[in-house]
């Protein structure tokens, strides 16, 4: 699939912002003495801005953005409708929650609105993952790892942002260490999930081929002409030219930037117990590493998607690669025959 920046921005900003708010709110509930309302307000405003930018990016994806309100017409059976509804509801509840904090409302009302926002966030994570996981003609998406990766990466980036905010605020070292420990666990779990995803994609069984696409029983079928379709929607939207080497390098980059670098930096912050400015520096470095890596990860998510319709346009990747980090095409025949 062609990686469209508007969709990538929507996915990253919305999931990261919600991860930030959910972690901040849970910290406030479980460690009230360490996380102040002011800090929750700061992270909440940041999460709110990220939601607004995410929603704005989603408009850029539409061909007719002026008719965008119609997207809520089919809530009963379209995951896209549910995604837009849940992000809107979350953003509204988040705004309400922030207003109540600013107006110093009783704790009960803050917890009610915050909890409702968390429920909306949960339904958003499910909806936005199912937008992709429900497309059964893209096997790289239609699996359980899509939901797991979307949710965990949202919490990793959101968590790295929360750690940065905590480390920059004064006298918050215990809270920073606790946040680092929890986000470290999430990141480690995310690393395992990502490796399992790569393994799943590389060993996936592809049930369709040119024979089933054309109905011909001939063992050798080669597409000669796509029919007035040199470069049109169906050849450009569903295919992104990328070499195996570039793909393998980007996959390694994702593991390094999103998972390994933050794990090392946060572990150093926990184990070496450096002074506050160093902790802030390490936290910011971890955040920038995560944030840049997640863009590569989400771009690869689109690039790797191998839609069945590519069978009709000569772009279908039928090679069932045993090694997700394979860089040389000369090994392909061996792998396919194996």
């Amino acid at each position: 699939m062609h990686p469209e920046m508007s969709l990538i921005n929507l996915l990253i900003l919305s999931t990261s912002g919600q991860g930030l708010f959910v972690l901040s709110f849970l910290f406030r509930v479980f460690f009230p003495e360490q996380v102040s309302d002011e800090l929750l307000l700061q992270s909440g405003i940041l999460a709110f801005i990220m939601q607004l930018f995410g929603i704005a990016a989603s408009f850029l994806h539409l061909g007719s953005p002026l008719k965008a309100t119609r997207v809520l017409n089919k809530l009963n059976h379209s995951w896209l409708s549910k995604e837009i509804l849940t992000i809107s509801v979350f953003t509204f509840l988040l705004a309400l929650h922030l207003i109540l904090i600013m107006m110093a409302y009783p704790k009960f009302w803050l917890e009610v609105t915050g909890s409702m926002a968390i429920v909306a966030s949960g339904t958003f994570f499910i909806s936005t993952s199912m937008v992709y996981a429900s497309i059964r003609f893209i096997k790289e998406w239609a699996n359980k790892y899509t939901l797991a990766n979307f949710t965990i990466t949202g919490f990793i980036v959101g968590g790295s942002l929360l750690i940065s905010i905590l480390s920059l605020s004064a006298n918050n070292r215990p809270a920073t260490d606790q946040a680092v420990f929890i986000v470290l666990l999430i990141t480690f779990f995310g690393l395992i999930t990502k490796l399992l995803t790569y393994r799943f994609n590389s060993r996936m069984y592809i049930s369709v081929n040119e024979q089933s696409a054309t109905g011909s029983s001939e063992p050798s079928i080669q597409l000669m002409d796509t029919g007035a379709a040199y470069q049109h929607f169906n050849t450009t939207e569903y295919h992104h030219p990328i070499s195996l080497k570039a793909k393998a390098v980007q996959k390694r980059g994702v593991l390094l930037l999103v998972y390994l670098t933050p794990i090392v930096l946060w572990s150093a912050s926990l184990l070496l117990k450096p002074k506050a400015p160093f902790v802030a520096g390490l936290s910011l470095l971890a955040f920038f590493s995560c944030f840049s890596g997640i863009y590569i990860e989400r771009r690869l998510f689109f690039i790797e998607a191998n839609h069945w319709q590519n069978l009709y346009y000569g772009n279908f990747n039928r090679f069932n690669l045993k090694n997700p980090f394979l860089t040389k095409t000369k090994n392909l025949s061996k792998d396919v025959s194996g």
Binding site: G63, S64, L80, I135, F137, F233, Y312, Y313
Partner: peptide
């Protein structure tokens, strides 16, 4: 009149038979 040009229907078509009209912004 109701189509917003989100292209989601084309993702769900296994035959690649949906076409996006870039001028009208609809499928």
């Amino acid at each position: 009149d109701a189509c917003i040009g989100c292209k989601y229907c084309s993702w769900a078509c296994p035959y690649g038979c949906r076409e996006y009209d870039p001028l009208a912004g609809v499928m």
